[in-house]
């Protein structure tokens, strides 16, 4: 093999390796973006008074999460919303006033409890991770076993 062709094949191999490395990096970057930016979190909007009386619930309050649907809560009510990604932005309005709060959802937390009266009173943090007891699994006898038969009709 001549020197020129050896240099050329080296250059091709180098280019190929660089392309493959870039492809792997793009794959990992896309996976990380989808994994972090696309994760859904359950946000529990809460309108309850503090036990120690440090903040009081509203008669009615309207709130939205990350610019989503506006939900109305009565006193002692709790509703569910969904936040996609790690950023949490809550906007609430009650008694003619508007309150806003922002936070970063810790990685690995699935459910966040947001206290709207706390947010209105300016108490930080106005949110806390919500960890409930795992829901009891249905008893084995109540659950149909996986069926390997009865494939769906052709074409769906």
């Amino acid at each position: 093999m001549s020197d020129a062709s050896r240099i050329k094949s080296k250059a091709v191999a180098g280019r190929r390796a660089a392309f493959r490395a870039a492809l792997a990096a793009a794959y990992l970057a896309a996976a990380a973006w989808a994994f972090v930016g696309g994760r859904g979190h359950t946000i529990l909007l809460d309108n309850k008074s503090a036990e120690d009386g440090s903040y009081a619930a509203f008669r009615t309050v309207e709130a939205s999460v990350n610019g989503g649907e506006v939900q109305q809560l009565s006193m002692r009510e709790r509703v569910k919303a969904v936040a996609v990604g790690q950023r949490l932005r809550v906007k609430a309005s009650a008694n003619g006033r508007t309150f806003e709060g922002e936070a970063r959802i810790p990685f690995g937390e699935d459910i966040i409890l947001v206290s709207l009266p706390k947010l209105a009173a300016g108490i930080e943090p106005f949110w806390e991770p919500f960890r409930s007891e795992p829901a009891p699994r249905p008893a084995a006898e109540d659950e149909a076993p996986p069926s390997l038969e009865a494939a769906p009709s052709i074409g769906g």
Binding site: Y27, A30, A31, W33, A34, F35, G37, G38, R39, G40, H41, V82, V84, D110
Partner: peptide, 18 residues
């Protein structure tokens, strides 16, 4: 399982499946 929502969920599924 990871509750990845919307189009990022589809992209994630593609990246896992690839």
């Amino acid at each position: 399982d990871w509750n990845i929502i919307g189009v990022p969920g589809l992209i994630f599924a593609n990246l896992v499946g690839l």
